[in-house]
Nucleic acid binder design. Structure first.
Lengths: 236, 236
DNA sequence: TCCAGGGCATAACGCCGTTCTCGTTTTCGG
DNA sequence: CCGAAAACGAGAACGGCGTTATGCCCTGGA
């Protein structure tokens, strides 16, 4: 998938001969065409996935909506799994970029971390309220897939989550530098644990709906943040 | 499905005539037979589900392994979904009973809560180490289904989780009575949030495997407990 | 003995992911 | 502009799986 797979092994100086340029340009034009087609599949899938009865869309539907053919689909994706993976990676990337923008407005340290947690919670939480871009909203619908990916293909999952993990790790690092975070916690792991706690608590808000009921996403987000920050122990 | 659907609408005194007794006895015997058959299906499914390549077993396999027929299967279950639901309910029930036993040995309050959290983490965490009864171990393999259930059928999910939620709520209540828990947290919700945090962090340990790697389930359990209890904020 | 119901085996149906075939269109070097 | 090669579209076909339907056997009670 990478652009620079020209040299198949041999170490070679960066001779930019006209010949190579021509080849590269030819390959490039083919590649942009291919990428355009792939993108049409991805767009169609995104439309389907956050279209009310999403998530369990069929390959046929993607093909029809994208105005292409089944043959093309299997020429670009080895299967539905790979499409979902690409979708998920895009959603994670878009989400982390979105978070990056939103969070930049807060001052580094605890306020930024707070905003980060609450905003991510709101993105993951299902509900009609969502003016986020479609690609970001798609993340919501992929909770189930995320779970499956995390358990069945940990390697791929970890790769897909990299943008979000690094973002959280960075923001956590800023907060730690500001002296707001306990210094005895394992850095890298904390980001993952916090991310998971937010995601899955937002995805499934109803595990204790027999005891408590809530429709206030903002309040739930704050409560989760409070729990993550302060823990449940009574201060001594 | 219920046994007492004898009176189809009319209000009737509890006349225990011999006629009704006979009918009841006949129905009872039919019911125990039915329950035996259902149990055979469930047992077969449990065997399959924690048999290495579990989770995605087929209805045919369940039927074959149980030595019964497809027809019988669809006579007792409306579909595969219902089988999974029954399996899940059993797993939750068995797990909460198991936890109840283990936890009874600890003194009420924080120690019991700690044990509860750590033990539940170990049950949910995948891995070769598991001398827990089969029914309990089955819970591990149903992480994906739990997620699906939580998002697509919140009502059923909440019902299925009741035993675990009430157990955790009780233990949390004991700890709160002992003065170890912040009194300003919403009681019922806390149980659900804690349960979810443990479950999904145990199910998917690898979200940040690009940063940190760990094979020590006990240490991870303690770390999660520490985070839940004390939060990530530096003590003032 | 008879017969009705429960149960088994198996075929069949529909959905869906995936593969294959065939005929057409597009691309690209010369 | 041409011709070969690659890409593409439309749709049939295959296989797995959940679900339903059919036909036969075996048992148990009148």
């Amino acid at each position: 998938m990478s652009a620079d797979d020209a040299a198949p092994g041999q170490p070679r100086a960066e001779v930019t001969s006209w010949r190579e340029l021509a080849v590269a340009r030819s390959l490039d034009s083919a590649r942009v065409r291919a990428e355009k087609r792939v993108q049409r599949f991805l767009d169609a899938a995104v439309e389907l996935i956050n279209s009310e009865r999403g998530r369990d869309f069929t390959v046929q539907e993607v093909v029809e909506r994208s105005g292409q053919s089944l043959r093309s689909f299997y020429q670009y994706f080895t299967g539905k799994h790979e499409l979902l993976l690409a979708l998920f990676e895009d959603a994670v990337r878009a989400t982390s970029e979105h978070l990056e923008e939103v969070v930049a407005a807060e001052e580094p340290g605890l306020p930024r971390l707070h905003r980060c947690v609450v905003e991510y919670y709101k993105i993951c939480r299902p509900g009609p309220k969502g003016q986020a871009p479609e690609t970001v909203a798609a993340l919501r619908a992929m909770g189930e897939f995320a779970q499956q990916l995390l358990t069945e293909h940990p390697k791929e999952a970890a790769t897909a989550f990299v943008p979000l993990v690094t973002l959280f790790d960075r923001v956590l690092g800023e907060a730690a530098d500001a002296g707001a975070i306990r210094p005895d916690l394992t850095r890298g792991r904390l980001a993952g644990v916090v991310l998971q706690a937010i995601m899955f608590n937002a995805f499934a808000t109803t595990i204790s709906s027999t005891l408590v009921r809530s429709d206030d996403a903002a309040a739930d987000a704050e409560e989760l943040w409070d729990l993550l920050l302060n823990g449940m122990a009574r201060r001594s």
